[in-house]
C-alpha cells in the first residue's frame, strides 16, 4: 500500500492554533488575488513531513500560495502559505506547515475559525506584467520568494485547487488533542494565468519543515477569485489512516 507519513503530530504543531469551536460559518472573500507555485520536493524526506493519516503524492510536492484581498469582510490582508501536497486516503489535499499573514481581523479569523497556522508578518504579493510574486522576510532575511514568470491566460475552469488539512488543537468530547481539520474552500475564478514556477528563496526552518526542499518546478498559476471559506465538515485523527480516522461533524 502507499507510503504513509511518519511525522509525530506533536512535532507538527509548533504553529498550529487552538480552535475553540469547529462550528464555523462559511465566509466569502471577493476578488482575491491567488498565486500558487507548485514544485516537486526532495523525496528522501517526504514521509517525515506528514502525519500517519496522510500519504505523500507520487511524486511528492509542495504548494506555495500567496493571497491578497484588497477589501472584503475581513478587510485588506495578504497571506503566504507553504503546504505539502498529499492524499487523505484517495482525496487530494495539502498540509500547511506555516502561514504568514498581515496583522488584522483576517489573521485571527483564519487562525481561529479555519485552523491556519498563522504567524503575523508582512508578506508581499506583487503583480507585474511579466511576473507575479510572493515574498516573505524574517527581519532582513528573505525566507520566501516565489514567482510565476511569463504569465499566459488560461481558462477559468482549467484550474483545480486542492483542499487543506490544517493541523490544530481541538477540544472534542472532553479531550484536547491535535486534529487535522479539512478546509475545502470554493473558488469562483474570474481570471486565470499560468506560467513558469520559480522559487528564489525558501528557508525551510522558518516554514517549520526543516527537511523540505523544492527541487523541480511544475507550474505556477495566478487568479482572481471569489473564495468561500467553508463550514468545517470533517476532521481527521492525524495518527490514523484517513480512510478510518475521518470524522464527519
Amino acid at each position: 500500500m502507499p507510503i504513509n507519513g511518519n511525522a509525530d503530530p506533536g512535532q507538527l504543531t509548533q504553529y498550529a492554533p487552538s480552535m475553540a469551536s469547529l462550528d464555523t460559518e462559511a465566509l466569502t472573500l471577493p476578488d482575491v488575488k491567488v498565486l500558487q507555485v507548485i514544485y516537486e520536493i526532495d523525496d528522501s524526506v517526504m514521509a517525515e513531513l506528514l502525519p500517519p493519516a496522510l500519504h505523500p503524492t507520487i511524486p511528492p510536492t509542495m504548494h506555495v500560495i500567496g493571497l491578497r484581498a484588497d477589501d472584503g469582510p475581513l478587510g485588506a490582508f495578504t497571506l503566504a502559505i507553504v503546504r505539502v501536497g498529499c492524499r487523505a486516503a484517495v482525496r487530494p489535499r495539502g498540509l500547511p506547515t506555516r502561514a504568514v499573514c498581515t496583522a488584522g481581523d483576517a489573521a485571527s479569523a483564519l487562525e481561529q475559525r479555519w485552523g491556519f497556522p498563522i504567524t503575523i508578518g508582512e508578506p508581499v504579493l506583487r503583480e507585474r506584467y511579466d511576473r507575479q510574486s510572493i515574498e516573505v522576510n524574517d527581519g532582513n532575511v528573505a525566507v520566501l520568494s516565489a514567482q510565476l514568470v511569463d504569465p499566459v491566460p488560461i481558462g477559468n475552469g482549467d484550474l483545480l485547487y486542492t483542499a487543506g488539512m490544517h493541523i490544530a488543537t481541538v477540544e472534542r468530547e472532553g479531550e484536547t488533542k491535535p486534529w487535522l481539520v479539512q478546509v475545502d474552500p470554493e473558488f469562483e475564478v474570474s481570471r486565470a494565468d499560468r506560467g513558469q514556477a520559480q522559487i528564489d528563496a525558501f528557508d525551510s526552518v522558518f516554514w517549520d519543515a526543516p527537511d523540505l526542499r523544492p527541487v523541480y518546478p511544475i507550474v505556477a498559476s495566478y487568479t482572481t477569485a471569489n473564495i468561500t471559506l467553508p463550514r468545517i465538515r470533517y476532521i481527521c485523527d492525524p495518527l490514523q489512516p484517513a480512510i478510518s480516522g475521518t470524522v464527519a461533524l
Binding site: H55, T57, I154, D158, A192
Partner: peptide
C-alpha cells in the same frame, strides 16, 4: 478498492498543471 486507492496517489495532470489539453 486496492486499485482505486493506488490510482488516487498519483498526480493527474489537471491537479498540478492547468491546461485545456486535460479538461
Amino acid at each position: 478498492g486496492s486499485f482505486g486507492y493506488l490510482a488516487a496517489q498519483l498526480l493527474p495532470v489537471r491537479e498540478v498543471h492547468p491546461t485545456r489539453s486535460y479538461p
